[in-house]
């Protein structure tokens, strides 16, 4: 009973996780400029692989794998916004422009 439940939970989690990862990759292609693409990669991508790791943690019984997978998720959540922020800052500083449909840019001056 418990086994079946953990199977189903893990299954649902990996399905949602992989959908998020896939949509993040699609977003890389569909969004117009580097800054908007960063939204897709840093949010949907992070949640995708985080969910997959959590599914592993929920399904595998032993504690050591559980803690390692959890540590991986926490680490990922900590680093993803930092790298996105740094990349955005660097691209803006050297002059990669926002897309033409942008409505406002208060960082310009």
């Amino acid at each position: 009973m418990i086994d079946g439940l953990s199977d189903i939970i893990a299954g649902v989690m990996i399905i949602t996780g992989s959908i998020f990862a896939f949509l993040a990759a699609v977003g890389l292609w569909r969004l117009p400029d580097i800054y908007t693409r960063m939204h897709a990669a840093s949010k949907a991508g992070t949640l995708g692989s985080g969910l997959l790791l959590l599914a592993l943690a929920a399904h595998v019984g032993d504690t050591s794998t559980f803690t390692r997978a959890l540590a991986g998720v926490v680490f990922f959540l900590l680093t993803a916004p930092i790298s996105a922020h740094l990349l955005a800052k660097a691209s803006y500083a050297v002059g990669y422009r926002l897309t033409d449909i942008s409505v406002i840019d208060e960082l310009k001056d």
Binding site: R30, L31, P32, D33, Y35, T36, L98, T99, I101, S102, V103, I104, D105, E106, L107
Partner: peptide
């Protein structure tokens, strides 16, 4: 149709 209005604000 994504209908984006991206931008940077302070």
């Amino acid at each position: 149709n994504m209908n984006l209005k991206p931008g940077i604000f302070a």
